[in-house]
Design a protein around this nucleic acid. Structure first.
Lengths: 263, 263
DNA sequence: GTCTATACAACGATAGAC
DNA sequence: GTCTATCGTTGTATAGAC
């Protein structure tokens, strides 16, 4: 699979990682086709996308446990019996979603630590990659955060472990910068958890940023600038100062009778 | 009710706000005794505490929707029929919990804005008050965050509004400091949302801080110090520099067969 | 590969004895 | 004020026709 792009932009990230469109769903299909009865991939992929998308919509409106398979059947247009050709059980559906997301995250952050960048550039790459990843797979992240409790114990533990692994990469970048004399950092673990918290807001508090009209690029830039400030980093003016704000495409409007905390 | 204490410590906060013990539960009883059939307050208060505490335990283990009233009956030792003398319905129970917490938060942050402190001291007061509040009522906060989707639309909106109101208080303190020439702040709204995010971590990611042995005092101090750094605040050395870390009481150990993400 | 029809366990809620 | 017994509903899941 792709490695992490040197150029940092939403578009280049999407090109490198292929996180949407038909080939993305083909990947999802390949990842767990063993668990389903449908063999024809062309038919399966379309319905798989329908089922996952509908699950995100319903689970984000009222929660996965409160969502019934009758709801899911209505939303997808697939009958109750039909659904069971694609999923083993309701709980299995949630497990698969978590598995797919963690698999992708693993690949992305696996590609991060092998870079040979200077500490500042390394941090920039980490922050932007994570924000772009969360932007692209926002419903997946939100679902996994909110429904973690309902998953099997082992998946819960792996999720926590993944978060610690991500923070370890940040901490390593802090350490490298301190060694170079560029950073000052007394509590790297707390600073790393702060960065994680800010990143996760991008899917947890979408309503707030939509309300205040903050776009992806501006948010990533803010996190990065603030992180450097907390590391007491002083950059050479004009060489790699704050970059300009480039407004991205506007997010599509979606109206629904139910309050959607995610969109 | 009490006003916000000038002295900043966990103990003084608890003394001022009375957020635990019997008189706290008496307050909870008074707040919604209209909705329940039991008139004898001495009996009611004890069972009310049992019901709420058990709800937090079960909901934090598997989610409120996944928790059945039969689970709750088993955990509290009160029969199914008996429970309905204390709650109107299952959904009503969740609503009452949210209502009690928001009522207390309203009082605490209501007391914050009327203070006549210098900007730096005002921020310190806000950060510490919120952390102590979250520490004391941690299960309430966690429950309300995770179960917000399941509550009536109006309560969801009020929760979002409360969060914006809290951030408005932060932003006002930033503004006052900028006016005094003590702070530099280009994006007050984003900085405020960052502080909120960090504060909420204290109940959302308890497992992480427990693992890393971070106590309340250290965490609050870290948020405050970092906030001042993001505001480019330069303090007079020796006058109000970073305070020492005073380790608080160790949190009690709790073992359970289920993974508890909150404790 | 998709549907309708159905099994049956578990749920929230209530009535009425004590 | 608390319990046991039970109601009607809704849930997940499956069998078998097409």
């Amino acid at each position: 699979m792709a490695s992490w792009p040197l150029e940092i932009s939403m578009d280049s990230f999407r090109r490198s990682w292929d996180l949407q469109g038909e080939s993305f769903w083909r990947n999802v299909f390949e990842m767990h086709k063993g668990k389903m009865q449908i063999k024809n991939s062309n038919i399966a992929i379309g319905n798989l996308e329908k089922i996952f998308t509908a699950t995100f919509k319903l689970a984000n409106e009222k929660g996965f446990q409160a969502m019934s398979l009758r709801d899911l059947s209505r939303e997808t247009g697939i009958s109750m019996g039909g659904l069971y050709a694609y999923i083993g059980s309701k709980n299995d559906l949630a497990s698969v979603i978590e598995g797919v997301l963690r698999n992708y995250i693993d690949q992305v952050i696996g590609g991060l630590s092998t870079q040979n960048l200077k500490p500042v550039e390394s941090l920039r790459a980490i922050v932007y990659a994570e924000i772009y990843m969360m932007e692209t797979m926002s419903p997946w992240y939100y679902f996994c955060f909110m429904e973690l409790k309902g998953l099997p114990r082992e998946q819960q533990l792996q999720t926590l472990e993944l978060e610690l692994r991500f923070e370890a990469i940040l901490i390593e970048a802090f350490r490298a910068g301190v060694e170079d004399g560029q950073f000052v950092c007394e509590k790297p673990e707390l600073l790393a958890s702060q960065v994680t918290a800010q990143l996760q807001q991008w899917h947890l508090k979408r309503w707030k940023f939509k309300l205040r009209k903050i776009d992806t690029q501006e948010y990533a830039q803010f996190i990065f600038d603030n992180l450097l400030m907390c590391l007491a980093y002083k950059n050479d003016p004009g060489v790699e100062g704050k970059t300009e704000n480039i407004s991205n495409e506007q997010s599509r409007e979606e109206e629904s009778s139910r309050l959607n905390l995610q969109a």
